[in-house]
C-alpha cells in the first residue's frame, strides 16, 4: 500500500465535485479539530513536549512522541494534512505516564501540533516544525 504526497495532491486537485462530496467525511482543519477538543477554551503553553524529527526522509512514516505529565487526554494534529487530526489518546488510571509514541503521515512540511487537556480541565499546546523531503529515486 502506498500513500504518497503525490496521491494527496491528486486528491487535492481531483475535481471540485469529488472534493465537495468527500470534504465533510474526512477533511477536518486543525482549527476545527482544536475547537472541538477544547470547546473553545483558552490555550496555554508549557508542560507538554512534542518530539519529532527536524527533517523526515519519508512523510509516510514520521516518528513522533508527545508527553504531558498529568494530562487526561492529548490530541495530535498535522495542520498541513488534508485532514488534520492524527489521533487522540486518553490516559486511564493504570497509565504509567502521559506519554505516547507513534508514527504518522505528513503530506508536506508543516508544524506538527499537540494539545493536552490537563486534569484540571485547562489546555496547553505545543508545535514542532517538520520538514518533509520528497524522495522517490530508485523506484
Amino acid at each position: 500500500m502506498t500513500y504518497t504526497r503525490r496521491d494527496a495532491l491528486v486528491v487535492g486537485a481531483g475535481g471540485l465535485a469529488v472534493l465537495a462530496m468527500t470534504r465533510a467525511a474526512w477533511a477536518v482543519t486543525a482549527d476545527e479539530a482544536i475547537a472541538e477538543f477544547t470547546g473553545g477554551a483558552a490555550m496555554g503553553e508549557g508542560g507538554i513536549t512534542l518530539t519529532a524529527p527536524e527533517i523526515a526522509e519519508n512523510g509516510n512514516v514520521v516518528p513522533v512522541e508527545v508527553d504531558a505529565a498529568g494530562a487526561a487526554e492529548i490530541l495530535v494534529l498535522a495542520p498541513g494534512n488534508p485532514s488534520a487530526t492524527i489521533c487522540t489518546v486518553a490516559f486511564g488510571p493504570a497509565a504509567g505516564s502521559q506519554r505516547l509514541s507513534t508514527r504518522i503521515r505528513l503530506a508536506k512540511s508543516q508544524d506538527v501540533t499537540a494539545v493536552a487537556k490537563m486534569a484540571d480541565g485547562s489546555f496547553v499546546s505545543t508545535s514542532q516544525p517538520v520538514k518533509v523531503t520528497v524522495g522517490g529515486c530508485g523506484g
Binding site: 500500500m1 502506498t2 500513500y3 509516510n60
Partner: peptide, 8 residues
C-alpha cells in the same frame, strides 16, 4: 521501504 509500506 517506508515509501511502499512493504518489502522490496
Amino acid at each position: 521501504r517506508l515509501k511502499n509500506d512493504g518489502l522490496v
